[in-house]
Design a protein around this nucleic acid. Structure first.
Lengths: 217, 217, 217, 217
DNA sequence: GATGAATGAGCCTTCATTCAT
DNA sequence: AATGAATGAAGGCTCATTCAT
């Protein structure tokens, strides 16, 4: 979370927390379990208190409301979501290898049950807590796309790719990579994360199509 | 909805309703407003009754429970979602034109606020009503993908395309076409549907990339 | 029911009905089933209408309220309860035989599931509908006791019995005969009516004890 | 209640409560008033909360449901019902004196308005909560009968009585003693408990008849 | 700081009753 | 006479939040 601060310094006060001592962690861990399993409305502060092993009153010592607690949880999930992925080596010359790596990483991450649950929870509450949804989107999916677009820019500059709109191209690549995998999970048509093999297949196909469309012949 | 009958005629009794008289419509219209605006859990039967202009008791004369009412609303939205799209002319020789048409149609449909709200509501409740989510997915997004895959199969047979996995290719095409547009709406990062021009741009790009990847040279 | 009128002519208007045509019977038959199975509060007018095969509105054409309908049902059960029993031959000289007959008759009647259900329903509602309970008691159990007491009076007059308080003696006899059998049923400790054999045993024992206490040596 | 422990130590967890602090007592006292006055179905948790002087929510902090609260109330009444009675001196040689004492004690207890109300409430709900009825019966009336039967066994063994079936004889004696008194109260034909004098009369008569039937000449 | 008892508004649902047809 | 659509009050219960300790 701290790592991102430079990228976007004006975080709305209602989104990021300060407290982070032991008790606070204890609460967050309990709350995460409950929120991700039940969604925002399905979760009760009672359940959370029980799961965290603290009293209901203590919840309110550390977090001013249920919504605030939820926001913090979600933001942590989003951060984890983003952190793990874009730490690849920009300097690698082999574009296809980089893209394949990214596609596999992102799909593997994003299809974890807890990430899917988080997305479901955010989407489900977005109508009533639009700021939360917006924050999650902009610093989650949107951030990933921006990072990829930046990378594509470097490859265009290097003459390795021919991409008129790198933002759009990045989105196309990411969606081809993971959307076919995560969509049935979002709708609960399956509980199972896809196999590593399946992830690799879909990723490889995405790379192939992407390179046909944007590779320099 | 009729268009689907051949594909999967045995709709589970718990999903599709029979009643469809005037009062029932009045309730459905009120309920749609409330459910799509607030989600399943956020909506209260009180609000729905008020919005529909009937008493709370009357709600239960027509729909046995809140869940049932929600299911009906969602299924109607899903049906609308699907109906409008796949009525194009299979026989057209110009694959690119067909794909462009499909991409525009589907994106235009799917980015309507009410469709986005329905998707949000379904995703949000999918953890607790998995059958609803599964039904929506299979007869909504999944159905569209199947129809497109069928079309691709005909083009492969006609030697116009070279597609190793038409299901995957169909998913890739559809996601490239609409995911970049609907995603920010799903997370409430924007309330605005994209402009027709933007839809056309994204669609055209999707067609271009798709044809590069799968067109026969 | 008519047969009793001479005994207690001032029946409160709220207890006895007038109507008795076909539709009314149809309703009463449905209502009996539901009331005896569910008790007053457990029964719903909806269930009754369904069971009777008429509309809910029709119920109110024939019976002004749920309470009224219940009263009528209960009174019919009470009447049945009483009618069947005291039609023995007063002139029989054999007191023991008469008592045995009475004990068996009354126990057989009173331990029928529907009669037990009726008693449960009446007792259960007596706090809130005291008139109903009182009426049931006075024309049911109390009436039986009076009839038996009258008989005992004749036997005392005939010098066959020596009973200082025939009302009390009648109550003692009746209770010895049926209370041990009906009590577990009332509390739902058993659903089974006692066997004919068991009824006979208990009756015989009651007669024996009674005659020891009140027989002329 | 303690007195019973040796007889049946494994009380089902669903029947006996643990909590017994001040607030819990306050709630129980309020609930008792309402339940005994209105019966299970007639009572509303709203009324109970008002009567107990706590909020509705507090009710559910201490008792998980209306049924549970009712069970506890009823079990307390039953315990009171049983406790007071069978603490007589088994060793007394004078059988008649012991029986008279028992008859008076039990009738005095059982004709208290609150005990009658409890019985009415239990009988009234027995159809829908059979376990409650069964528990009440077996540890209330049934328990008393067993205790008396045990005593009769000792007197038979001592040659003071000649009783072929002590269980039946015990039931006969108890019913003769109290049934004529409690029956009109159960049906609400009277609200008044019988006078001490009347209780004594009925008890004396029961003893007389019982001894005629079972005493050793 | 931490508790957990207490709250009261709100939830979904049921139901006896009414009334226009 | 008979209907069945419609009602609105009331039911049991949950829950986020507060506050005295």
């Amino acid at each position: 979370m701290l790592a991102e601060s430079p990228v976007s310094p004006k975080v709305p006060a209602t989104i990021l927390p300060i407290v982070d001592n032991a008790k606070s962690r204890q609460i967050l861990d309990g709350a995460r379990k409950v929120f991700l399993a039940q969604g925002f409305e399905g979760a009760s502060m009672n359940d959370i208190a029980r799961e965290a092993g603290v009293s209901k009153g203590t919840l309110y010592v550390y977090f001013e409301s249920k919504e605030r607690l939820f926001s913090v949880i979600i933001d942590e999930e989003r951060a984890a979501h983003v952190e793990g992925i874009f730490n690849f080596d920009y300097s690698t010359a082999d574009v296809e290898a980089v893209l394949l790596h990214i596609a596999i990483e992102i799909s593997t991450f994003i299809t974890q049950p807890r990430i899917v649950s988080a997305m479901r929870a955010v989407v489900g509450i977005a109508e009533r807590m639009p700021e939360l949804g917006e924050h999650f989107y902009e610093r989650g999916p949107c951030y990933s796309r921006n990072k990829l677009a930046e990378y594509l820019d470097t490859r265009v500059a290097a003459g390795q790719l021919d991409v008129p709109d790198t933002q759009l191209a990045a989105a196309q690549f990411l969606e081809m990579s993971h959307a076919p995998l995560i969509k049935p999970m979002l709708f609960r048509a399956t509980k199972q994360s896809p196999s590593a093999e399946r992830i690799r297949e879909v990723a490889a196909s995405a790379v192939r199509v992407f390179m046909s469309g944007y590779g320099v012949k």
